[in-house]
Simulated assay, not measured.
Amino acid sequence: MHEKGDRVGAAEVVTELMAKTRYNVFNTRSIGKFLSTKIDQIAGGLMLRSENDPSGVKRYWVVNVEQETKSEAGERELPF
């Protein structure tokens, strides 16, 4: 994964997303439709999540499922 703020990594992600759209151009609606089909699917230990903000903008982010599972297991109390 690329670090936040990595412009080279962001350019690669945009290029990959554009390749998945109908006309190979950056169109937020087309990319949003593509990403919405991938929400909550796990691939390579990562999962795409999303939420709407009050202005109607959808925000996407990637979660490392393995780290999330470990932190949740550590927070649970043992039954005995």
Rank of each mutant, 00 (worst) to 15 (best):
V25N: 11
F26C: 11
A19M: 08
E16L: 06
G9M: 03
L78R: 08
S30W: 07
E51M: 07
K58N: 05
E77F: 14
I42F: 01
G9D: 00
E16T: 04
I39F: 07
A73M: 14
T69V: 14
V63T: 07
N24A: 12
S30G: 08
G32D: 01
W61V: 02
G32K: 07
G9Q: 07
E16C: 09
L17R: 05
G5N: 11
S36Y: 01
D53M: 04
A73Q: 15
R22M: 04
E75L: 13
P79Y: 10
V62L: 02
D6G: 06
R59C: 08
G56K: 02
T28N: 10
A19D: 11
T15I: 02
V8D: 03
K70L: 12
K70W: 03
T21E: 01
A73V: 09
L17K: 05
W61N: 03
K4T: 07
Q67A: 12
E77Q: 14
G56H: 06
K70A: 14
K38Y: 03
E51R: 13
V65W: 02
V65S: 01
G74C: 09
D40R: 15
G5D: 07
T15E: 06
H2K: 14
K38Q: 14
S71E: 12
I31K: 06
S71Q: 14
F26H: 14
T37E: 10
T28M: 10
G5L: 13
M47P: 05
P79F: 12
R59Q: 10
G32Q: 05
V63L: 12
T21G: 04
R49G: 03
K4P: 06
E12Q: 10
E66G: 06
V25E: 11
E68P: 00
S30V: 04
F80C: 08
G44T: 03
I31Q: 03
Y23M: 06
S50K: 07
H2V: 06
